[in-house]
């Protein structure tokens, strides 16, 4: 897969949809193209978050540690982004991500991503849009649970 294909893939993500084409190409270039075999771990719960991964092909399992052992909570596949929250804050990974099929990813370094945000306001809007959509979604969920709790 060459750089231009990777740029196309990034473009399809809401996070990067509104970024300048040349900046996006630079982001792709400074990111590492990485492959994982099934069973290999991208990152562990509790690790410091230093990068996000864009899945170019393949699938991953997302799992969290519980006293009863790890529980699979979600899966992700082509054209999705994993661990993106780590790009925006200094937190730790909240889940473990494992490749479940031969996986091809683009590893986006946190510092490079932040530099790009500074240079490219249009992309910042894209990110804000994604975050606010999620927040709306979460608020709605919370309201639903709350009303369910109160009526109960």
């Amino acid at each position: 897969m060459i750089l231009d294909d990777e740029v196309r893939c990034l473009r399809s993500l809401p996070f990067f949809a509104s970024a300048d084409p040349s900046k996006l190409k630079r982001l792709a270039f400074t990111s590492d193209h990485m492959r994982f075999a099934p069973g290999q771990v991208l990152f562990h719960e509790g690790d410091p978050g230093d990068a996000a991964y864009v899945i170019l092909s393949g699938t991953v399992d997302v799992s969290v540690e519980t006293p009863q052992g790890p529980i699979k909570v979600a899966t992700a596949d082509r054209n999705s982004i994993i661990g993106e929250i780590a790009l925006l804050n200094d937190g730790y990974r909240t889940a473990t991500v494992t490749a479940s099929a031969p996986l091809e990813t683009l590893r986006i370094d946190k510092h490079e991503f932040l530099n790009l945000m500074k240079d490219c306001p249009s992309m910042m809007f894209g990110v804000l849009k994604v975050l606010s959509t999620r927040l709306t979604h979460t608020t709605m969920e919370l309201a639903k649970h709350k009303s369910a709790h109160e009526t109960a």
Binding site: M1, I2, L3, D4, E6, F29, H33
Partner: peptide, 12 residues
């Protein structure tokens, strides 16, 4: 050109 690595730069 001499320092180009296809797998690293991916310019095709």
């Amino acid at each position: 050109a001499f320092s180009y690595v296809e797998s690293r730069f991916r310019f095709g």
